[in-house]
Design a protein around this nucleic acid. Structure first.
Lengths: 148, 148
DNA sequence: CAGTATCCCCCCTGATACTG
DNA sequence: CAGTATCAGGGGGGATACTG
């Protein structure tokens, strides 16, 4: 019936979020945008994605209000893609993914990237869970730990 | 060449995370698991996903170490799926998605779900950005705001 | 209930060529 | 450089039937 289950109408806010930025490339585009990437070619080089896909994703993200187009800052005739406040608010999600990846997706001693560091190489704070295992979690169980 | 771009070897921790839990259903499964869902049929009912897909996703998440199987707590012969510490650590990501969805994916006055509330209906704190617009963001710019 | 097996369509994705 | 247009394929994803 449905080609793919749509979550736009879902009652759960997590599902609605994933409906907007849950596909394969969107969050990587947002990650790059948070790092200051603005130009089509920069996104393409960073992501290694086909031009058609990139154009489609950028168009979708603009339509969703995550990105907006702006005149090129260098005076060229093209546009740039910059995050809206809605898009910038995804920083919390990207930072969470970044930290989780660092903690659980690398072998011991394996170096992390600094190129993709959304904090631009600064020492970063961490989001820790202070809730005991087995008990329900709430956002108040998240604590921000300053870098040592 | 490649059926789909793999990010497992990518140097960026965000990309590695998305390689593990970036597909359509994984984070929704984690969301339900954080809410206490453990049984196959519960996941299926909650997600409305085809059984084949659910079985594949659960298998993948177990293989990735996000979930682990455990004997059924009610004595039946089947297994249950519970989060590992690695999986529980995704709470930060799910909470971020949930909050972003609430803030940006609902019309004015439209009610949110409480069923999918990963905090089990408790009043929840919020993660706010205290960084000024236009400046680089870092995790230290995230502040946890207690419920009013 | 908890899956596995099978069928099949459609869209995602990638590659290439083309335009301004 | 910044896209658009087009094509081909592979698998994601749904539905159903079947098994233990």
């Amino acid at each position: 019936m449905v080609k793919r289950t749509r979550l736009q109408e879902d009652v759960c806010p997590v599902a609605r979020s994933l409906d907007v930025i849950g596909d394969w490339w969107s969050l990587l585009i947002v990650r790059d945008a948070l790092s200051g990437v603005r130009r089509f070619s920069e996104f393409q080089r960073s992501l290694g994605v086909a031009k058609g896909m990139l154009a489609a994703r950028l168009r979708d993200l603009v339509a969703e209000g995550v990105l907006e187009t702006a005149p090129a800052s260098d005076g060229s005739a093209y546009q740039e893609y910059v995050l809206t406040p809605k898009g910038r608010a995804l920083y919390v999600v990207v930072a969470g993914l970044r930290q989780w990846g660092e903690d659980h997706c690398y072998g011991p001693g394996e170096a992390h990237s600094v190129l993709c560091d959304v904090a631009h190489g600064q020492p970063v704070a961490r989001l820790e869970l202070k809730c005991a295992e087995g008990t329900p979690l709430g956002p108040e169980d998240i604590v921000v730990v300053a870098p040592t």
